[in-house]
Design a binder for these strands. Sequence first.
DNA 1: GCCGCTAGTTGAACGTGTTCAAATTCAGCT
DNA 2: AGCTGAATTTGAACACGTTCAACTAGCGGC
Lengths: 237, 237
Amino acid sequence: MKKKKATKTVKGDQTKALILETALEMFRERGYDNTTMRAVAEKAGVSLGNAYYYFRSKEYLIQAFYQRLHDSHIEVALPALEHEKTLKARLLTVMRTKIDTMKPYHQFAGVLFKTAANPESPLNPFADDSDPVRQQAIELFEKVLEGTSARIPKDLKAELPYLLWVYSMGIVLFWIHDSSPKHRRTYRMIDHTVDLLDKLIHLASNPFMRPLRKQALRMVNEIKEALPDDNEPQKAT
Amino acid sequence: MKKKKATKTVKGDQTKALILETALEMFRERGYDNTTMRAVAEKAGVSLGNAYYYFRSKEYLIQAFYQRLHDSHIEVALPALEHEKTLKARLLTVMRTKIDTMKPYHQFAGVLFKTAANPESPLNPFADDSDPVRQQAIELFEKVLEGTSARIPKDLKAELPYLLWVYSMGIVLFWIHDSSPKHRRTYRMIDHTVDLLDKLIHLASNPFMRPLRKQALRMVNEIKEALPDDNEPQKAT
DNA sequence: GCCGCTAGTTGAACGTGTTCAAATTCAGCT
DNA sequence: AGCTGAATTTGAACACGTTCAACTAGCGGC
């Protein structure tokens, strides 16, 4: 029962993995645009059409890359978080390790963002709630919050992971544009924005700010609702 | 003196305009991706290579489109602004007319944003300070501010046109994703965000907020500086 | 009136992402 | 052992953006 149908699937999985590994390696070495599907197929020892059997388009290879990147980040960020207790320090840790992880792909990342920003692209990270990478990324920010004792109102706390994820996308966007040596500017930007965010979160937690905060959060939800598929999973029909 | 060299240039200008008009018409009718350079050239009655003589790439046609769109917006927005005195009403006017203007190009606009979000693209609106469309768009928000009596601190007032322009890009991004009938969601989003922005601007203008505001503005400048070519024009070397 | 030069124009050719009908492989069934 | 249908694999063909070497046109200078 374990082997009967398994072989085929296993073989397919192997081929798929082989193609993906080859592609990612070539992306890293020569960049996305300079890597042709033909070259990937040839290096992987499969036919061109076979690559398209497993990846509907070249873009889908990016999606796989994106997942890979996130996994690496988690691997580094979670242990590092154990040492940090304050919201500010935890946020700083997550953001710094994020850039650390992405560093080797700076050139490649431009393409990633280009396709991700396309509303029609399957890579659009806002598009589809079922996107596992996105969920995992937001979960990471939940963990950032959980580990602190900061007093944050419930309404804000509920949305904060999502908002911080959006913030992290902004930083990544900045980083893509950042051509300073060793990406110093991005790290500086992280330091300063995290400091500011920390202050803003505390300001927004002030009872005086309640009405304004409510209004802002209502808007955040309006935005989220307008995005396709962005709802709680329905319990059947 | 007027005609000697003129003939050639005039002829070139005519051809260029012809190609552009043809392309924009076809974009509107069939969308960007479904319009091939070959089809544009054929319909315009020129050769394929000729189209590339005037437009370095297909993307450059979008840039021209973008300029066209902005011109239309100005034409509608400026007269409409004359009736409005408060910051909130003026902002509302500009944003609503913006969406009004873009309406016929909803489908096409997705592609516009995809390429605009590409850091390597010449269309990236953040990329290059000399981009006239961008300058004009920011100027429009300067006019929005000038026409009001709202008491806004100088430091904030200096950055506000730029910030509002960024905000307007956000709304456009939302609109691109918005598939609700008649883009109602976007108009609602404008109403609510403008309301919120108005409140935030007044909050930020409060003397109590000075330190936080200063810090936030410092960061805005840091971001702007990191963008390529984003400086005052230098007075020679 | 002719020359040379630049602006303008041409279309064939190239590279690359993608498609597709056909060929091959292979596990399970008889 | 042979059959069957699904999974996998193939490579030729297609479409389209882009490039380029060559050609033409027409103006200013002689």
